[in-house]
Nucleic acid binder design. Structure first.
Lengths: 193, 193
DNA sequence: CTTAGACATGTAGAAACTGACACGTGCCCT
DNA sequence: AGGGCACGTGTCAGTTTCTACATGTCTAAG
């Protein structure tokens, strides 16, 4: 059901066509929150309209249909937001990979972690730049789309990415300790518990 | 395909039955990395065996089947770990909810965030207790391997949970600022935008 | 001896999601 | 006038995941 509420959320901000909503998805939700393809967006919009949570408010050129959220849809979205599940379902291939790293040789795991730390730092730099550029021209009227409804979300990234990067550095240090221990054991066989 | 590799990863650590793997899932991967139900686990184990990536090494009481990873399976897992995708698919209902909080009134959003901060703190306390209890009895026999699966995962939680909690506090402060601003701006305007 | 609860493994139908394919339009550039 | 490209909406077959149902065993407590 999450896709449904993701779309209602975007529509709560602003009416739009499937095409526009797909683009918005790619720019904002896709990276950290929820991934969806254009065909899924179109299908869900049709369902949303069938269920009375959204409606077509305009039909334009090239078969374009602009959807807007209805009052029912707004109420539904509100209920969903106010009742978070105690244990939300998580599926994050990225984190899964991190957890399974122990299956690699320490050296290989170290290389993967190093690349991960670097990628996280790159993401952090990009987000920092984005936030700063948004701060620079607040008088301009329209905030850049990714931040238009994402001030809190951007803050989330600014808190979580450094933690993620720091964890990677910590994990690398763990691996280095282990490599050192293994070397030490090779020379001097005493086992200290 | 992620479920497949999650199981291979668990099997790379230690052979086990579907039942045991399900429990392991719940204790380790489920919370931060990957969610799966027991029926999915059983189905995937059958497929894994059919594809030669795992094999039944023991059949015990109550129809119990113990699976072990094969060399092919190990090689497959290794390849998967060494070739991470550039843009992994993310679907996180929790983050999605954060992104969409703007659709609530500030007061409502504040309440959701407050509960979230408290829940995160509870998780952190529980994890801290768990880690300390594990550290306390090293004489007990098995020291946690620095690379073993739970060790990296626990470290991840210890890094990410405080960041998550701090973000929530920051977000609450943002909302309070906003509420204060709105009060200051117009006494006569009672309707939110 | 009975029963409750952990152990243990599955099937079936529905929903969500993926990847590939399909089709047509308005606009700009040359 | 024609080509290329962004715009714009969809179908379909196949895979993955979810919800609910189904079945039976071993063990410890009363």
């Amino acid at each position: 059901m999450s896709l449904r509420y993701a779309l209602l959320g975007l529509l709560a901000d602003e009416a739009g066509s499937g095409y526009e909503l797909t683009k918005k998805f790619e720019r904002s939700l896709d990276r950290y929150a929820w991934h969806a393809k254009h065909n899924q967006v179109y299908q869900e919009l049709n369902r949303l309209a069938a269920d009375g949570l959204a409606e077509v408010v305009e039909e334009g050129a090239r078969g374009r249909k602009t959807y807007a959220i209805t009052e029912t849809g707004r109420a539904d979205l509100r209920q969903w937001l106010l009742n978070p599940p105690r244990n939300p379902v998580v599926r994050n291939e990225f984190v899964l990979r991190l957890f399974l790293l122990f299956a690699l040789d320490p050296k290989e795991a170290r290389a993967v972690l190093t690349e991960y730390a670097a990628a996280t730092q790159r993401d952090l730099d990009a987000l920092t730049a984005l936030v700063e550029s948004a701060d620079v021209d607040p008088a301009d009227g329209a905030l850049p789309d990714p931040l238009a409804f994402g001030h809190l979300a951007a803050g989330f990234g600014l808190h979580m990415l450094p933690a993620s990067r720091d964890w990677a550095h910590w994990a690398i240090a763990q691996i280095d300790n282990r490599i050192r221990e293994e070397k030490g054991e090779g020379e001097d066989r005493t086992r200290g518990a």
